[in-house]
């Protein structure tokens, strides 16, 4: 028991360490590197070193700059998706818990259906309808992300609503909104926050996969998955063009999972 707890602490700490290094690079990077979209056709396929820290790609753009910019895009889009999923998930989950009856049944059926649906395929379908672009990606990933938060917040909400202090609040004449805000949301939020790292890890995976498929940001803008796809034809000559963003991507997801697993285990208990 003790060793497992210590082990989990180490996982969280190392995950946070990796994430802060990546975060620092993503935030400070753009100030130290050239414009990620500026092409310099005299520097095509430069090896890592000078003048570019991580070399240049097939259009002579700085890989370091694109890595930082791409990281910014990937991470901020992931945050946006997870925030959207959390908001809609918690909203629907609390609605299900609060209203009960038919609303509850309908929402939970919807949860069952979406939870089972493959996320990338749903994103493709939505991109096919809306016509690609970041909006399609965000909508799609929100649509696949919300059920988990919905289930948890419904369970926590139902649990809290059966507590005596909530009943006391009702008897004291507090408005439903007040009780929801003061008692129930206060109980639900910590549980959801703890789940967020896992969700972020999965979302980064999905966003980069969609970027790799060519659905997401418009081409000149950097994105980790898209960077890998762009450099794919040059895999033979300059594999580092692919390996650098791939490493950054995998490390980020790994770090999120390192933090998320122990925390998520605590929620389940």
């Amino acid at each position: 028991m003790e060793t497992q707890k210590k082990n989990e602490q180490w996982q969280v700490i190392s995950g946070l360490l990796i994430l802060s290094i990546i975060g620092l690079f993503v935030v400070i990077g753009p100030f130290l590197t050239p414009d990620p979209c500026r092409q310099n056709l005299t520097q095509v396929f430069t090896q890592p070193g000078t003048p570019y820290l991580l070399g240049a790609d097939h259009l002579g753009r700085s890989v370091a700059a694109r890595l930082a910019g791409g990281g910014m895009n990937t991470l901020s889009f992931s945050l946006l998706c997870v925030a959207g999923s959390v908001l809609s998930g918690v909203g629907l989950g609390l609605a299900a818990a609060w209203c009960g009856g038919l609303t509850d049944t309908l929402i939970m059926r919807l949860v069952d259906i979406t939870m089972a649906f493959p996320g990338i395929i749903l994103a493709l379908l939505i991109a096919g309808v809306v016509g690609g672009g970041p909006v399609a990606v965000i909508i799609a990933l929100m649509l696949t992300g919300w059920p988990e938060y919905c289930r948890i917040s419904r369970a926590v909400g139902l649990n809290t609503m059966s507590r005596p202090y909530v009943e006391a609040g009702v008897l004291a004449g507090f408005s439903g909104f007040f009780i929801l805000r003061k008692y129930i949301i206060a109980e639900v939020l910590p549980q959801i926050t703890v789940l967020a790292p896992l969700g972020l890890g999965r979302t980064v995976l999905n966003i980069s996969s969609l970027g790799f498929l060519g659905i997401g940001l418009a081409p000149p803008e950097p994105e980790w998955g898209a960077m890998i796809a762009e450099s794919l034809p040059y895999l033979r000559q300059s594999p580092h063009l692919v390996l650098v963003p791939a490493t950054a991507l995998s490390l980020t997801v790994f770090a999120f999972f390192l933090i998320g697993r122990p925390l998520g285990r605590r929620v389940r208990k």
Binding site: G201, L205, S208, S209, F212, G225, I228, L232, L235, R236, P239, V242, A246, L249, S250, V253, F254, F256, F257, L258, R261
Partner: peptide, 22 residues
């Protein structure tokens, strides 16, 4: 396993291409 799950599938594929094909 948790490391493998963190690596996107296209990256696994790329590494396999680099090692076993190229």
């Amino acid at each position: 396993c948790s490391a493998l799950v963190s690596v996107p599938q296209f990256v696994i594929g790329l590494l396999l291409i680099l090692a076993l094909a190229i």
